[in-house]
Measured scan of single mutants.
Amino acid sequence: MQRVNMIMAESPGLITICLLGYLLSAECTVFLDHENANKILNRPKRYNSGKLEEFVQGNLERECMEEKCSFEEAREVFENTERTTEFWKQYVDGDQCESNPCLNGGSCKDDINSYECWCPFGFEGKNCELDVTCNIKNGRCEQFCKNSADNKVVCSCTEGYRLAENQKSCEPAVPFPCGRVSVSQTSKLTRAETVFPDVDYVNSTEAETILDNITQSTQSFNDFTRVVGGEDAKPGQFPWQVVLNGKVDAFCGGSIVNEKWIVTAAHCVETGVKITVVAGEHNIEETEHTEQKRNVIRIIPHHNYNAAINKYNHDIALLELDEPLVLNSYVTPICIADKEYTNIFLKFGSGYVSGWGRVFHKGRSALVLQYLRVPLVDRATCLRSTKFTIYNNMFCAGFHEGGRDSCQGDSGGPHVTEVEGTSFLTGIISWGEECAMKGKYGIYTKVSRYVNWIKEKTKLT
């Protein structure tokens, strides 16, 4: 034993070699072989497995989906700052455009905790909710729209109204504003409101030439003092309507412009014939205590009207009353817009006519005020429907199939267009061939041609 100890002390290297040989010859039971080890760690190889990531292109799944990435790591994937920024906006807080917040056709661009709407022409605001041009839906104005110097929408209202708090709607500024039905039992019968379409306001006024200088022999019209197929109006439903009495009662109609003036057809009036105007009328054979009678003290036909040349060209006249009318729910003026808007309103496509005229061709006159909704007829169809001249200051309205029309005794009465609950004068009943005849239409004086003249002559002093 002493000898062994001496050998170990003198030859430590020998001992180490012996131990190493023993270990190498022993069977290893701690580690699995290569094949079995792979069965336990069965993990798919990654895209760049075996390579240094710093030297390969980034992978979106590896960089940002398996674990949260930084902007720089995302930049490695896209290799483009702009594309990385677009991805980053949604990656950080989701897609803010998912709810489609942009209105009126706006395009949404996502941002971090926010979004941006790219608005089409005519709109602005956070969600493109603000109209900035009158060309689109009248700028959301209830009545009139004008573009300011910086191309912003400025709404306005006709006389007797003021802008509401929203700067879009119009509200009454006087007790009985024009064009409004205020009798409670008839307010439910107000005709369907007309909503502004998209309009090209630059070209809204037709490029028409008034044929002022045409000389033409007097034409022989049949029954051209021209509501057939209409309905009984309720008291106060058309408070701007008046009836004219002269040699015979209810020979023509008219509309209240203001307390002192009536507008009617020029062919209705004769110099030297006494005319009485009755406002607030409903049943011409009954006294309903809503009527107001006034005498006409002055007749002003349009300066281009000449019955000797043509009885229905420039067929418009103004009547001055001896005493002002007292405005109330049964006696209310009709609204008159400017030339541009009167023309736009007419193009809405349908209007209402009213009167006490004959209820059928050569038949009896109506006792109760009649009204009828009539569609506008395109000019080409209008011209083809008659052998008589249709001037540019006239328009056609009615039904091709016949059966409904204005008729004798309705002449001078109103053709009105309702705009968001307020009625505007767009025409004056003038003439036609018979009444409600198939293929024939009622012919009306186009008020847009005469609004400046009306307003100039009827100013209240």
Rank of each mutant, 00 (worst) to 15 (best):
V174M: 08
N245H: 06
Y305S: 02
G272F: 04
I344S: 14
R298K: 09
D93G: 14
S70V: 08
L60Q: 15
F388G: 03
Y161P: 00
F224M: 12
G357Q: 14
R46G: 10
E82N: 15
T264H: 00
S70W: 04
K440C: 13
Y115F: 11
K438Q: 12
Y312Q: 08
G280C: 01
R358W: 10
E288P: 08
V451C: 12
G179I: 01
I454Y: 01
T332S: 14
V183I: 12
E259N: 08
K152H: 09
E281A: 10
E420R: 15
N306D: 13
G122P: 15
P375K: 15
F238V: 05
S70F: 11
A26E: 00
A337D: 01
G105S: 12
V30A: 05
G272Q: 06
Y444G: 03
T389Y: 07
E72F: 15
I214D: 05
F238K: 04
N245A: 09
T276L: 04
E159C: 03
R43T: 12
L20A: 03
C178L: 01
I256R: 00
L14A: 05
A337F: 01
E323A: 10
R3E: 04
G50T: 15
Q57P: 09
G94I: 06
K260L: 08
E456S: 10
W240A: 00
V56E: 11
V242I: 05
D249Q: 05
C141R: 00
N258E: 02
V416F: 09
F388W: 09
P175D: 02
N135P: 11
Q241P: 01
Y91I: 14
L52K: 09
Y115G: 09
V447Q: 00
G105V: 03
F424V: 01
C407I: 07
E171F: 09
T290K: 05
E86N: 15
G272A: 06
I284R: 13
E72L: 15
W453S: 01
G230P: 12
K137C: 13
H314G: 04
F71S: 15
E434D: 10
D200M: 03
G355R: 13
G403M: 15
V92C: 11
S156C: 04
E434A: 14
G351Y: 01
P177E: 01
Q185N: 13
G246V: 05
G21K: 02
E124Y: 11
D111Y: 13
S49W: 06
V416N: 03
Y341T: 15
A207S: 10
S217D: 09
A164H: 11
N283T: 12
E433S: 11
L325T: 01
T342I: 02
C97S: 03
I344Q: 04
A337Q: 01
D315T: 01
L244K: 01
E281F: 04
E72W: 15
S448C: 03
A436W: 11
T417H: 02
N59A: 07
I316F: 01
T215M: 02
I112L: 14
D232K: 10
A265W: 01
N100K: 13
C145I: 01
W261C: 00
N222T: 04
E67L: 08
N59L: 03
G179V: 01
L369E: 15
V243C: 04
F395S: 02
S99W: 13
K362V: 11
Y47G: 11
A366V: 04
A250M: 07
Q237G: 10
W356M: 04
A233M: 08
R75G: 15
Q90I: 14
E66I: 04
W240K: 00
G253A: 13
A26M: 04
V273Q: 05
D322Y: 02
V56T: 14
E433A: 14
Q2D: 04
F144K: 01
G413L: 15
C141V: 00
T381V: 15
I17K: 01
D110S: 13
R358D: 12
V257Q: 01
L319S: 00
L32E: 11
I428S: 00
K51M: 05
V278P: 00
D93K: 15
N42V: 11
H289A: 05
L24F: 11
E231N: 11
E53H: 05
C141Q: 00
Q90H: 09
V359Q: 13
V243S: 09
I40L: 08
V257G: 01
L372Y: 11
R75W: 05
L163I: 05
T218Y: 06
N306W: 03
G254L: 01
F31K: 07
I214H: 07
L24A: 07
S350N: 14
A397V: 14
K347D: 14
H314F: 10
V278T: 10
V4T: 11
G122K: 07
Q219W: 11
S148A: 09
K168W: 13
E86D: 08
T386A: 11
P120W: 03
I214Q: 10
K438I: 03
Y201P: 07
G427M: 00
V199W: 12
E27C: 04
C435T: 06
N452C: 06
T332I: 05
C119H: 02
A366W: 13
F196R: 06
V416E: 03
T81F: 10
V92Y: 03
Q216M: 08
I390T: 13
G439D: 09
I390K: 09
S99D: 09
V243L: 08
G106S: 13
V331G: 00
D405K: 14
S11V: 11
T458P: 01
L372R: 09
N151Q: 06
P172A: 08
V374E: 02
I428Q: 04
N104W: 07
V183A: 08
N151D: 10
F251C: 06
N222D: 08
S114L: 13
T426K: 00
K362I: 05
D110N: 14
V416W: 12
I454G: 01
Q219V: 04
R364Y: 06
Y91V: 15
S406L: 14
L346A: 06
A173D: 13
I300V: 12
C382V: 03
L41T: 09
V326Q: 13
G432Q: 03
E456K: 10
T342S: 13
A317N: 00
Y391W: 10
E231I: 11
T271L: 11
N100L: 09
V248R: 11
R75T: 15
P44A: 08
G253H: 09
H303A: 13
E73L: 07
F221D: 10
L319D: 01
E35W: 04
R140K: 11
E231C: 12
I262L: 03
H34Y: 09
Q241L: 13
K457M: 15
G421E: 05
I336M: 08
A337L: 01
A173Q: 05
Y441R: 04
V242P: 00
K234M: 04
S385V: 15
I40N: 15
T290F: 04
E79C: 10
I390C: 10
L325R: 00
G398R: 09
W356T: 13
Q216K: 03
V359T: 07
A308D: 14
R43G: 12
N245K: 06
F424D: 01
V269I: 13
D131F: 06
E79L: 03
S354C: 10
A266R: 02
D232S: 11
C108S: 00
F251H: 06
S255I: 11
F348N: 14
F360Y: 06
S184Q: 08
N48Y: 09
E61T: 15
G351C: 05
V92T: 07
V199C: 15
T445W: 02
N295H: 09
K188M: 12
V243P: 01
K168L: 08
T194C: 13
A279K: 01
N213A: 05
L367C: 08
N343Q: 12
W261Q: 01
P414A: 14
S148P: 08
A9Y: 05
K247Q: 11
A265C: 02
E72G: 15
V183K: 03
V263L: 11
V56H: 13
M8Q: 09
C396W: 01
R3W: 11
V263A: 03
F224V: 07
V278F: 05
N213S: 08
S99V: 15
C157Y: 00
G253Q: 10
N328Q: 02
T417A: 08
L367G: 13
V4S: 14
E270L: 11
L321T: 02
N100S: 10
D378F: 03
P101D: 05
P44E: 10
A9K: 04
T422F: 03
K68S: 07
E27W: 02
F348W: 10
K68V: 12
P239N: 01
N203K: 11
E323I: 06
